[in-house]
């Protein structure tokens, strides 16, 4: 595993480049197929509203997959991720229009750990709301 970031070059508080990830209904259909999660709350507005949701929502695991890209794009090698965990706090609501929704993800180094690893705390927002809580990754740097 070969991260392109050196452990010696980061400090607690180092910010990772933030990214924004657009999500449309088409994104969700594609993710449903790739992941095998065909729960209709992720593609059927009528069903989503029947179960009390405001509209179709993104798969939590889709949001989780996007958020870690801030870490893997920074580290270069996705295999450098040692641990990754999130709490699904609020859904990403995806309206049926061209824009869909946007997930904004930022991250910073929260701790330097043993064995060239660091803990990165991630912040994932959509429509001004925090959509992931306790979103943390441990990544091994070079």
């Amino acid at each position: 595993m070969t991260a392109q970031i050196s452990y010696a070059d980061v400090e607690v508080g180092t910010e990772l480049p933030a990214q924004t990830f657009p999500v449309t209904r088409a994104t969700l259909v594609r993710y449903a197929g790739a992941s095998g999660d065909f729960n209709p709350i992720h593609w059927n507005e009528r069903f989503a509203k029947e179960v009390g949701l405001p509209d179709v929502i993104a798969h939590g695991m889709f949001t989780m997959a996007e958020a870690i890209r801030v870490v893997t794009d920074w580290a270069g090698d996705p295999g450098a991720v040692v641990e990754y965990g999130v709490r699904f706090t609020r859904p990403v609501v995806v309206p049926d229009d061209e824009q869909g929704a946007v997930i904004e993800v930022s991250g910073k180094v929260a701790a330097k750990l043993d064995d060239n690893t660091v803990r990165v705390d991630l912040l994932a927002m959509s429509a001004g709301q925090k959509v992931l809580g306790m979103s943390r990754a441990v990544v091994r740097l070079s």
Binding site: M1, T2, F21, T27, R30, Y31, G33, A34, S35, F62, A65, E66, R69, T72, D73, G76, D77, P78, G79
Partner: peptide, 24 residues
């Protein structure tokens, strides 16, 4: 298919040579 579905173009997911260069 999964990498494309999440829009992630990291070559380690699709190019064996790129993955090998990282030690995989």
């Amino acid at each position: 298919e999964f990498a494309e579905a999440v829009g992630d173009a990291n070559p380690a997911y699709t190019d064996a040579e790129a993955a090998k260069a990282l030690g995989h």
